[in-house]
């Protein structure tokens, strides 16, 4: 491997974290009309990292890949506007809800791509699996590092930091590899107007895919049970004594 870095970034279209979720009684899924969709925030760290690594290497290519419905083209265009070189949409109206099934499709696309590095967010903020990137790594037989909040890549070797409970794990690996990205890795850039204009002209290939039968079935989607009605126990420092009493006698947590 020379100085050229070929990097794939997996991106997903998700409802904005500020969105209030409504359930559509017809489909049993979320009501898409009620929410704004964005690039999964953790995937933005992955796109930023790929662009920064390519810039540092001097030469290379950043390919953004998304699995989803036709509307995911918009997500890919956002990543292209940040600076990625081209996009691939693996198009299906029935994107699998199981991360293994999703990873199979992604791995098949990545297998012969000749990528030095495959990046994605550590999780998507819709289904919260925290799994797809690592399954892709395993299916491709590559080193897989999840939730990196620090990453250095040099001369075919990588080192990453992963936050664990009460500490930071330092891991070493060889390229090619799959790394999923956590907050703290970098500050994603905002697309400049020029980037947005250029993104419209960048290549975006659409490939139809057919997911395999999933080994799980979503049988229900419900809003979480409402919390029991709370109460204001007091104002200012006068609230402290009744709060302590409630925590000791009612809630029994003290």
């Amino acid at each position: 491997m020379g100085d050229q870095l070929k990097i794939a970034v997996l991106v997903k279209r998700v409802p904005d974290s500020e969105a209030r979720i409504k359930i559509d009684s017809g489909s049993g899924g979320i009501d898409p009309a009620s929410v704004k969709f964005v690039v999964n925030p953790y995937d933005e760290y992955a796109v930023e990292e790929a662009l920064a690594l390519k810039e540092k290497a001097g030469e290379g290519e950043v390919v953004v890949i998304s699995l989803g419905a036709d509307s995911s083209q918009e997500t890919l265009r956002s990543a292209l506007a940040m600076g990625a070189d081209r996009g691939v949409l693996l198009k299906t109206e029935n994107a699998p809800t199981d991360p293994f099934a999703a990873a199979q499709i992604l791995a098949a696309e990545l297998e012969d791509g000749g990528f030095d590095l495959i990046l994605s967010g550590k999780l998507a903020i819709d289904d919260y699996h925290h799994a797809t990137g690592i399954i892709v790594a395993e299916l491709l037989g590559l080193p897989g590092v999840s939730a990196a909040s620090g990453l250095t890549v040099e001369s075919g070797k990588g080192s990453a930091e992963r936050e664990i409970e009460g500490g930071v794990e330092v891991v070493d690996f060889q390229l090619p590899a799959v790394v999923t990205c956590d907050k703290g890795l970098n500050e994603p850039r905002y697309p400049a107007l020029k980037g947005i204009m250029m993104a419209k002209k960048k290549p975006l290939e659409v490939k139809d895919v057919t997911p395999a039968d999933s080994g799980v079935e979503v049988v229900g989607l419900d809003l979480p049970p409402a919390r029991p009605e709370g109460r204001i126990v007091g104002e200012g420092v006068d609230g402290v004594a009744p709060l302590i009493a409630a925590l000791q006698q009612e809630a029994k947590v003290l």
Binding site: I21, I30, I125, Y128, D222, P224
Partner: peptide, 18 residues
């Protein structure tokens, strides 16, 4: 929980192992 707990998903495993 999905959407970080904004909704709860009930999932039935149909595969032999999960």
């Amino acid at each position: 929980p999905v959407y970080a707990g904004k909704a709860m998903s009930t999932v039935k495993v149909t595969a032999g192992t999960a």
